[in-house]
Amino acid sequence: MVNIALVKIKMESDFLSFHIYKFANVLFDINLLTEDEYNLFIYGTINKESNDYIRLGLSSNVVVTLERNDQLKNLVLSKNGAIRANDEFKKFMHHQDDLFRFELSKFIT
């Protein structure tokens, strides 16, 4: 069942990436969408800081969880795109599930 769910998510993601997102890009390019509307549609939030993390490759679910737990303040995004965490964030990570920690560990130095 898990594999079927992953395949379904992948198919939906591909459809959005190849068709709907291109349409949103065109609408934004011809100024029919504002920047906030575009960011809300593509990234799911108008928060610029959250969008930066999503652009780096973090899933929107992870970023929303970080926002909800007020943890974005404990992360710093360097000029070269590396994410650095303070000790408070490391304590937070210690109490998270394995999947969440695994996804973040790919990005945090």
Rank of each mutant, 00 (worst) to 15 (best):
V2T: 13
N3F: 09
N3A: 07
I9G: 03
I9Q: 08
K10A: 03
M11I: 05
E12H: 11
E12R: 08
D14M: 06
D14I: 04
D14C: 01
L16N: 12
S17D: 12
F18I: 02
Y21I: 05
K22Y: 13
F23R: 13
N25E: 10
N25M: 04
N25H: 11
V26N: 14
F28R: 14
D29Y: 08
I30F: 13
I30Y: 15
I30T: 12
N31H: 14
L33M: 06
T34Q: 02
E37M: 08
Y38A: 07
Y38K: 10
N39M: 04
N39E: 11
L40A: 11
I42E: 08
G44C: 08
G44P: 13
G44W: 14
T45K: 08
N47T: 02
N47I: 00
N47C: 06
K48L: 07
K48H: 09
N51D: 01
D52T: 02
Y53V: 01
I54C: 03
I54M: 07
R55C: 04
L56W: 07
L56I: 05
L56R: 10
L56P: 06
G57D: 03
G57W: 04
S59G: 04
S60T: 02
N61E: 02
V62W: 05
V63R: 04
V63E: 05
R68L: 00
N69Y: 14
N69P: 10
D70Q: 05
Q71N: 11
K73M: 13
N74P: 09
V76T: 15
L77Q: 06
L77R: 09
S78Q: 14
K79F: 12
K79I: 07
G81C: 11
G81F: 15
G81A: 12
G81H: 15
A82I: 15
I83R: 14
R84Q: 14
N86W: 09
N86A: 09
D87Q: 12
F89I: 05
F89R: 11
K90W: 13
K90I: 02
K91H: 12
M93C: 09
H94N: 11
H95F: 15
Q96F: 08
Q96H: 10
Q96M: 10
D97G: 07
D98F: 02
F100K: 04
R101F: 00
R101V: 00
F102Q: 03
E103W: 01
L104I: 03
S105Q: 05
K106L: 01
F107L: 03
F107T: 06
T109R: 13
